[in-house]
């Protein structure tokens, strides 16, 4: 029982770890591109925006287990097999990329357009804007998005058992459900709960520490609120003194 569980834990972390890395590497540029190409964006390109948006939407709404099956040919091409941990990483990552991209899009869109304008007024180009403004300013949200993605991926890995990838979810289904070894199921549930809580805690901590550094007094959201209501309320008076 002990080696079985530790192997399952290791499998889960292995799959989640790699697919998170790939999701971030693929989803971050995609999410930023979604913001840049939208109407009025720095790289306005309505066609590209629609195409990317549509692909992301379809990939996101696909049930993971179907995506996994549908991608088998691609998985075989990439890893040479459709069975096991490495093979499961392919559909996990491909499922997580659009998920993460949408979260990135929301986070990046939250960045104040005035900052973009400021960097442009200094002579910065689009790449400068992405590097110096969009990513650093959205970082707390991006970290929170990564946490959400990791937690979602842990959920997906439960289904990876169907392609023989192992992992905690697989143990829970095969031993707990199919063999009625209820205690083993509860142990995996407990381990999953602890792992998810730890990840969530670490993610929140990281996001909050960054956020606190940035907006300790919470001035920025208040300002944005004022700006939105400015035309109706007349002269803006911000007293952050």
């Amino acid at each position: 029982m002990q080696p079985l569980l530790s192997q399952a834990c290791w499998d889960t972390l292995y799959m989640v770890g790699w697919s998170t890395v790939i999701a971030v590497v693929g989803g971050l540029p995609l999410g930023i591109l979604l913001v840049l190409t939208e109407r009025g964006g720095l790289l306005q390109n309505v066609v590209a925006n629609k195409v990317i948006g549509q692909i992301v939407n379809i990939a996101r709404s696909m049930p993971f287990i179907i995506l996994m099956v549908a991608l088998m040919g691609f998985t075989r091409w990439v890893t040479g097999t459709t069975i096991g941990r490495d093979a499961a990483i392919v559909p996990l990552a491909i499922g997580a990329i659009p998920f993460f991209a949408r979260l990135v899009e929301t986070a990046v869109r939250e960045v104040d357009g005035g900052l973009v304008e400021a960097v442009q007024s200094m002579g910065g180009n689009t790449w400068t804007v992405v590097r110096k403004v969009l990513v650093p300013e959205a970082l707390p949200s991006l970290i929170a998005s990564t946490t959400t993605t990791v937690v979602a991926l842990i959920g997906y890995t439960a289904m990876a058992g169907t392609v023989g990838a192992g992992g905690l979810g697989d143990i829970a289904i095969r031993y707990g459900y199919q063999r009625f070894e209820t205690d083993l199921m509860w142990i995996t549930v407990a381990i999953l709960a602890v792992v998810i809580s730890l990840i969530q805690f670490a993610g929140d901590l990281a996001a909050r520490s960054l956020h606190r550094r940035g907006n300790r007094s919470g001035a920025a959201p208040r300002l944005r609120l004022l700006k939105a209501s400015a035309p109706t309320t007349g002269t803006v008076q911000t007293t952050t003194e």
Binding site: D112, G114, L115, E117, A118, S121, K132, V133, P136, E137, L139, L210, R213, G214, N215, A220, L223, K227, V236
Partner: peptide, 14 residues
């Protein structure tokens, strides 16, 4: 050309 803004537009992360 320098430019200053009504809402300062400083990067909060820096």
């Amino acid at each position: 050309i320098g430019m200053v803004f009504q809402h300062f537009n400083l990067l909060s992360s820096r």
